[in-house]
């Protein structure tokens, strides 16, 4: 990884972490495990659609690992890792068939995949199939939050995309 790319991904990770930590301060809106805005996903989304999957994966992994340390909740690491990677896979696959004006679609599906992965991991690890009750609710919340972060990411990608590419020196 070149110095330029390393520095750029580090800055993106820092942005993602900041957003993540700020979101931690927002009180829970709904008392359901796993329902949150997922603002940090905006950064993953922008990175993916402007710089490609490898940079996005690097930023995502760094954000999840460091975020778990910041949140002081290493237990939840497994859940967010499963959800995050599943969401990433969905976004990466959908990138091929979406135009730049449909970035929000990838975000919606990614948010749903994230919640499905998270709940699946929790069911397996904690042995609590009762959590399945939350699945429909989490899908609905995934659509709503995914739409929000998706639109935010789409606009950000539109503005930032050209500038980020410029710094690449290509």
């Amino acid at each position: 990884m070149g110095v330029r790319r390393l520095a750029r991904d580090a800055v993106l990770t820092a942005v993602a972490l900041t957003v993540f930590v700020v979101e931690l301060q927002i009180p829970e809106l709904v008392p359901i495990p796993g329902v949150k805005l997922g603002l940090a996903n905006i950064v993953t989304l922008v990175t993916l659609f402007t710089l490609g999957p490898w940079d996005a994966l690097a930023v995502l992994m760094a954000r999840i690992l460091l975020g778990a340390l910041f949140a002081g909740n290493v237990m939840a690491l497994l859940y967010s890792l499963t959800g995050g990677l599943l969401a990433f896979a969905v976004m990466t696959l959908m990138r091929k068939i979406l135009t730049n004006r449909q970035i929000w679609v990838a975000s919606v599906f990614a948010a749903m995949a994230h919640n499905v992965g998270q709940i699946g991991a929790a069911i397996l690890v904690a042995g609590t199939p009762e959590l399945l009750v939350y699945l429909p609710v989490l899908l609905v919340s995934g659509i709503v939050t995914g739409l929000f972060t998706g639109l935010a990411g789409q606009y950000a990608a539109g503005w930032l995309g050209k500038n980020l590419r410029k710094t690449d020196g290509k």
Binding site: L131, V133, Y134
Partner: peptide, 10 residues
């Protein structure tokens, strides 16, 4: 019918 869940404490 929805249960209360404390995931960190399982």
């Amino acid at each position: 019918a929805a249960p209360i869940v404390c995931l960190p404490h399982r």
